[in-house]
Design a protein around this nucleic acid. Structure first.
Lengths: 255, 255
DNA sequence: TCCAGTCTGTCCACTTGTGCACACAAGCGC
DNA sequence: GCGCTTGTGTGCACAAGTGGACAGACTGGA
């Protein structure tokens, strides 16, 4: 049998997570036996602040996780999205530490999970595996840095457009995002009425349409035009550091 | 000779960086021979985006580094401060990757430096050394997460107060911060005239005084009252994860 | 000691975003 | 097909922050 076909078949059997799929066959062999895929529903909390981090969660397919920072008001602030391009839990800390943020399932679906101890053990046995995760940790960091800057200087309008595009890139849904105005407002950290107004202005310009509980994108390029460039900056870093992991049409279709 | 005195003498001879001082004698012995301390002046750039990360810089004493995210306008946005509690360069990525942010010396002074390859080699030889750096990486991440949330929801007034307090904590200067209004405005990502106005209002309330090129703090508790709680949240995480590294009166006096 | 360059305080018109209120629309269970 | 709950569109008064302008005040260097 052709070795390349063998590898392709092997890759196909992996969970639909680009980070896991990027691993060499040998590296994945170290993790595979310990990976379990299970669904989580939207709003499920993977971690709360202070929780002992013991499991790494890899969003598969259209699943999406988000990091929430608790606030003195009790209102959590959403920071970054993680989809099939990455993983959450112990990526930087290497686990066994109290979580700083809350981690929440934003869009439900399958997650591949592995105990952080198993992952760390595998990292000690393979320099290339260690390298892939260090590279992803760097990309995660880049994402948060960009988000900090974005929150400091970009308008709600730009950030709204950015968020919708980022969510669509990760889920693979080409024209809709399941989100109420209230949820959108909360995740941007703004008032609901203003979020409605921004959507209304996009609607008036023919960029999108609104349905009860979801946003339908009519003109993706129009949306891109109205978004800040933060997504692109992060995507470029992913490409430079972990080519092929950031979700695009091709990498999504494979899943 | 009393072993404890011996160790104390050993610790005293290390650079005035709390992260390095926290290491066990055995762990520091792995790094010490490769550490060089050298001064950097304010505004010196340690990294630019895209630079190959090869050196880890540990601010010592009153030195302060900051991460800047470039922006489409050419205006950089300042994100987080790193002082004697930490280090910059390859902490998360483990080096040999292109830098995502610019890293700039905010307040000049001594920095201990080590080649990232030497540090990584030492981490492979010592689990406890690896653990300290993983813990610090987690704290750094917490800092950025908090900063993202802070930029999303806190007022300029709160962030101004927060920034001044954070800078003072790290430098050890009890009542002044060398900063022009212009610089303060830039680092907050706001207009200069508004920054002046905020300082003016603090001045009117007796919290601080302004001098050409520096801010004199008159009432630190008043400033704390006007700041958001972001610093404290991060400090608590440091205490939980890396007790004694975050600068306080005691840990500063030792240096 | 004076000049030039920088920093500071303040004014103003304007945009962005807040927070509350209220009417109406959509969807779900029954 | 009726209500109830939740989500949406919009009006309004207000607060926060922008960006340009300009006069005056420091400060270092010639």
């Amino acid at each position: 049998m052709d070795a390349r076909i063998g590898r392709a078949a092997e890759v196909e059997s992996r969970p639909a997570n680009n980070l896991l799929r990027r691993l060499s066959q040998a590296d994945y062999a170290l993790l595979g036996p310990h990976v379990a895929v299970e669904d989580s529903a939207a709003s499920e909390l993977l971690y709360n602040p202070g929780d002992d981090v013991q499991v790494v969660h890899f969003p598969c397919g259209p699943s999406l996780a988000t990091f929430l920072v608790p606030n003195e008001d009790g209102r959590d602030v959403e920071t970054i999205l993680v989809g099939r391009e990455g993983a959450v839990g112990g990526i930087v800390s290497e686990g066994f530490l109290p979580a700083y943020t809350r981690i929440c399932v934003k869009f439900g679906g399958p997650f591949a999970r592995i105990h952080v101890g198993k992952l760390e053990a595998a990292k000690l046995r393979s320099a290339s595996l260690r390298n892939v995760f260090a590279r992803y940790a760097d990309c995660l960091l880049a994402q948060i840095f960009q988000s900090t800057a974005c929150n400091a200087i970009h308008s709600i309008e730009q950030r709204t457009a950015k968020w919708i595009l980022a969510a669509m890139e990760r889920t693979g849904d080409e024209n809709s995002v399941p989100l109420t105005h209230e949820q959108l407002a909360t995740l941007l950290g703004v008032g609901r009425s203003y979020a409605s107004r921004v959507l209304q202005s996009f609607k008036a310009e023919g960029v999108l349409d609104t349905r009860r509980g979801s946003i339908l994108v009519r003109n993706r390029d129009g949306l891109r035009l109205r978004a800040c460039l933060c997504n692109d900056a992060v995507k470029m870093h992913f490409e430079e550091v972990l080519r092929g992991v950031y979700p695009t049409e091709e990498t999504r279709d494979a899943g």
